[in-house]
Every structure is written in structure tokens, then in C-alpha cells.
Amino acid sequence: MQWNFQEIHQQAQTEAQAINSPQALEAFRLKYLGKKGLVAAVFASLGTADPSQKAAIGKGANDLRGLVEGLIAAKSAGISTAKVSGEQVDFSLPGTGEVLGHTHILTQTMQEIIAVFEQMGFVTIETPEIETEFNNFTGLNIPIDHPSRDAFDTFYLDAEDPSAQGRRLLLRSHTSPGQVRIMKQHKPPMAVIVPGRVYRPDAVDASHSFMFHQIEGLLVDEKVQFSELKGLLTEFCRRFFGPKVVMRFRPHFFPFTEPSAEVDINAEILGIQRKKWLEILGCGMVNPKVFEAVGYPKGKYKGFAFGMGVERMAMLKYGINDIRLFYENDARFLKQF
């Protein structure tokens, strides 16, 4: 039997190149290295071979085995050699298991805002929704029968204020009474955030609700500057709306701060075209009359305060156009966030 090893080697190499599956690889292995394979056949032919050829045939068989083993090793690296189960999984099917629930977008927005201030060293305190006139108004330099109350129309409760005879308890119309409570209880330095629900008897429409959420901030110490209020809120806006936000501080009036300002951001950053500026929050240096009302020594402390509406922030940031969506709790709304 004559063996043309050169041709066999070429043939094996050509076949190996075409292998593209574990099955083909196995067939290739059997063809050359199997019990009835070519290598075995070559060795078997030694018995009948011309003695002068035996050495060459033996070497040829060994070379062929080496070549085929090398080809298989090289090929199998590229082809999965896993045992074939015959299973064909359609990976376009959805995975099994339950979907996650969603935290309400107002909770998320509140957590996001709070996180920014907590990272900067503020602590968070929640104070009650049911308040006294003193905390909601008088202590904040909002006198009874003063037009500055117009902005804070209030729900009163059918319950007498135990601390003021003949006066009713009320639902806080802003989170600022939290300032009064906290300052009455603690001495500076302090840097606090007060989040929570507030109430105003506003007729409900796309941008008004009789219940909404606010976040109040208060920082008090012996030396506090307006420039620090600006710096803090600028940093907040950058983190909340993105680094490209443009802001402006516009003088305004709040009875409990002096000077007072409103902060606007550029509408463009939120993709809003109909306006140039969007008002997002109110702020100012704590009015000395508030420090007086909470019993701090005259002239000892300075501070700043700010407040923002959570619904407004969420509506601006996420493009929600109707405040009623927040409280309607349609599952299709809840599951978007």
C-alpha cells in the first residue's frame, strides 16, 4: 500500500478549515483518529508493507496523527465543545420573574434633592403637618391681617391650638414652620432640610393642588453670608439640572427672609421654548425678627433659608404637564419612573 502523505496532509488541512460546528469537528476526528480512522489504517498497513517502507510509513502515520491533533486543538478553541443537548432556546422570549415595583416620582425627586444637600452636610428633619399659627405665621414675621398672608391661604382645623387660646390649629401652608420648630429646639450651628406635605385652599387645575410637597432648607451659624446661599444653590442646581444650567437670583419678598430672592433657571436646559426663565425656588437671609421670635440672642446669629416645590421640580425635570397626575395614581403613570 502506497501512502501519499503530502496529499493526505493537504486534504486534512482543507477539511479542517471548513469545520464550523462541534459535530463536524467530531466527524473530522473520527475520520482520522477514530478506531477505523485513517491513522489506524496507516498503522494497520505496516503489517503488509515492504520492510524498506516501514520506517517511512510509521513516521508518516505519527506525523499525520500529530497534524490532525494539532488541527483539532486549534479548531476546538473556536468551537464550543460542550455536550450537545439538542435544546434550542429562543432568547427573544422574555425572562421569567416578577417586575420591580416603582417608587413614586415625587418620592424619587425628594430623595434626589435631599441627597444633594445631605452630601453637602445638611441633615434631614421631618416636622408635623398640623401646625400652630405661631409656627406657620407669627414666628415667621407674617402678621395676622397682613397682605403678606395672601400668598399663604390656609386650611384651619376644627381643633383648638392648646398653646393659644381661641386660635385654631391649621395645616401648614409651607414647610417654613419647620424652621421655627427646629430653632426653638436647637442652638446653632445647624444645616437642616425639612421635606413634607403642605396645604393651601387652591382650586385644583393642571398647575394647582390643595396638597403638595415642599423642601425647606435652613443654615444658621454666627457668620453666614448671602454669597454662601448663592454658592450652595448654584451647586444644587448644577447637580440637579446638570452642569450647564444657567441661573439668576432675582430680588423678591418673603416676610421671613431679608434680603430675599427668587431663583430662575434657563428654560432652554429643559427643552422649554415658550419662556426664557423658569422660577424654581425662593430663598434669602433669615430675617432677624425670626431669630427674635425663636428666642435667639439679638444679633448673635445669621442664617439663610430656601424652599422649593417638589411637584414643580419634578414637573420641570421630567416634563410632567399636569400636577393632578401625581395623586391620581394611574398605574401607567406610576410605572414610568
Binding site: G121, L219, E228, K230, P251, E258, P259, S260, M285
Partner: peptide, 29 residues
């Protein structure tokens, strides 16, 4: 006095006042 300070701030323009981050004390409440 703070009412007068606000007038000065208004005349300068709030946007022209300096801005810096506050120092928040570790001794918070």
C-alpha cells in the same frame, strides 16, 4: 438694618454679588 442692606444688594444686583460654597460645621444638630 437688613432692609437697608437688601436695598444695597438690589442696587448692586444680586447676580453681581459673589458666590461661594458655605462652610457646614460637623457640629450640626
Amino acid at each position: 438694618d437688613v432692609d437697608v442692606i437688601e436695598e444695597i444688594a438690589r442696587m448692586i444686583g444680586f447676580d453681581h454679588l459673589p458666590s461661594k460654597l458655605p462652610t457646614i460645621k460637623a457640629a450640626n444638630i
